[in-house]
């Protein structure tokens, strides 16, 4: 997320809602925004690419995305809204058309999208009487956790240089259960561990875009159905009064799709055990794999790096 947008959003309480126009429980603010958005004259032009602005009488038929940003005041009144991608790639008057390396017009310029979003938020802040010129102090990064429950946090990144949004990390948190603690108890001897026993950790390693692999009927993202692999768990010395063990090996992840789509990667996870306990008290680890993605334009498979880290959230980690 762009720094200017993050700063502009500091005074706000931020949340999200997703749904369809025929849902029965659409919040009033969303209903009002969609009434305006889908009113006559604002519909996308049928049969035409939505991201190409048209001129003349069709001028109002501008590009629409499926994400809207809605600003409400403290009483819940609708103050401002805008389509999150409406102005992306539009040429400013008098400015040269930006082209990519292949000479095609840039339809999605992330910088122009960030500028557009920041400008819209500035407009909203002005309507709310917030001090728009002030540089808002940034909050610290606060990652999700499970209140009071020891957990594993998984931060995953698909490093696809063609899909900038995909490089934004996902952050998932899963509780550590008794069986996992028991599976990974300290021992001075090497042993093997079935990766299936850690499915709740490893099944969070998948790309951020829910459209990447979805059920065509339900539109729901395919979850990881199975995790395979034999991992080696071995003592790895001491550090700062803790005994260490390392869990290493290759795992395969298969999702629920009927085509048995699978990707693989290597995991290396370090665990620390207090001298007086056989239960681990801290975990830090990595997943390094490749995610096969079909490139329809070039009719070939691309292997995209998929990386993740695992880290424990514990009172002692």
């Amino acid at each position: 997320m762009d720094g200017a947008v993050v700063r502009a959003l500091q005074p706000y309480i931020v949340t999200s809602w997703h749904g369809h126009r025929n849902d029965s429980d659409i919040p009033e603010a969303v209903r009002r925004v969609w009434q305006q958005k889908y009113a006559a004259g604002h519909k996308p032009h049928p049969g035409k690419r939505q991201n190409v602005p048209s001129g003349g009488p069709q001028e109002q038929r501008q590009r629409q995305s499926n994400v809207d940003i809605v600003i409400l005041d403290a009483e819940g009144n609708l103050v401002h809204w805008f389509d999150a991608a409406r102005q992306t790639g539009r040429k400013e008057q008098g400015q040269p058309v930006k082209r990519n390396r292949r000479g095609k017009k840039n339809q999605r310029d992330p910088q122009s999208l960030a500028k557009y979003t920041a400008a819209q938020l500035k407009l909203a802040s002005g309507k709310l009487g917030l001090a728009t010129g002030r540089r808002h102090k940034l909050r610290p990064v606060t990652l999700p956790q499970l209140d009071g429950t020891p957990a594993i946090r998984i931060l995953c990144t698909l490093e696809d240089d063609r899909m900038r949004a995909y490089s934004t990390p996902t952050v998932e948190v899963v509780p550590i259960n008794t069986a996992e603690r028991s599976l990974l108890t300290w021992s001075g001897q090497k042993r093997t561990v079935d990766a299936r026993e850690l499915k709740s950790w490893f099944s969070q390693v998948y790309p951020p875009g829910i459209m990447e692999r979805t059920n065509p009927q339900t539109k729901e993202v395919y979850r990881i159905k199975s995790v395979e692999g034999t991992l080696n768990l071995a003592p790895a010395g001491h550090s700062s009064g803790y005994r260490l063990m390392v869990l290493t090996g290759t795992i395969g992840l298969t999702d629920e799709g009927e085509d048995h789509f699978r990707y693989d990667g290597r995991v290396e996870i370090l665990m620390a055990y207090p001298e007086e306990s056989t239960d681990f008290s801290a975990v830090k680890g990595v997943f390094e794999g490749t995610y096969p993605r079909w490139d329809r334009m070039h009719n070939r498979r691309r292997n995209i790096p998929l990386r993740a880290v695992f880290e424990s959230i514990d009172t002692d980690s």
């Binding site: 959003l9 005074p11 706000y12 309480i13 931020v14 949340t15 999200s16 809602w17 997703h18 749904g19 369809h20 126009r21 603010a29 969303v30 925004v33 969609w34 499926n66 994400v67 809207d68 940003i69 809605v70 600003i71 409400l72 005041d73 403290a74 819940g76 103050v79 999150a84 938020l121 909203a124 709310l128 917030l130």
Partner: peptide, 8 residues
């Protein structure tokens, strides 16, 4: 104020 991201 609230900033609400609405995803269709």
């Amino acid at each position: 104020p609230v900033c609400l991201a609405v995803i269709h």
